[in-house]
């Protein structure tokens, strides 16, 4: 398994939470927005979204769309927001630490 795929998957939850935090979004829209930033198997989004709902970080509601199936919108709960903020902090700390370690080394 390509290691960079693992990285992207690890970041996917964070990206999704941040995108839903910006505004409520539906699955396909999320897939598009995520793909704009990172290249990832879009299908992985749906199991992830289910998990977020199961864990109480998101709620869903349906909205009719013209000429298509109803859109299932995802909305961040307050627990979800807290979770997102924790993840963002951890992410920043992690990236900072790893970058520092890399830049210290003789590789670059």
């Amino acid at each position: 398994m390509d290691i960079s795929i693992q990285f992207k998957k690890g970041a996917l939850e964070l990206c999704v939470l941040v995108l839903i935090h910006e505004r409520d979004r539906y699955g396909y829209e999320l897939a598009q927005s995520v793909s704009e930033h990172i290249e990832v198997a879009e299908g992985a989004l749906y199991p992830l979204l289910r998990r977020l709902v199961n864990e109480g970080y998101c709620t869903t509601y349906l909205q009719e769309s013209t000429g298509g199936p109803p859109r299932k919108y995802y909305k961040l709960t307050s627990t979800g927001e807290t979770h997102m903020k924790t993840l963002v902090t951890e992410w920043k700390q992690f990236v900072y630490s790893v970058s520092r370690l890399i830049e210290r080394g003789p590789l670059l």
């Binding site: 699955g27 396909y28 879009e42 749906y46 979204l49 289910r50 298509g68 199936p69 859109r71 299932k72």
Partner: peptide, 9 residues
């Protein structure tokens, strides 16, 4: 969910 994804696509 996947079916809807196809429809939107």
């Amino acid at each position: 969910d996947y079916e809807a994804h196809f429809a939107f696509g």
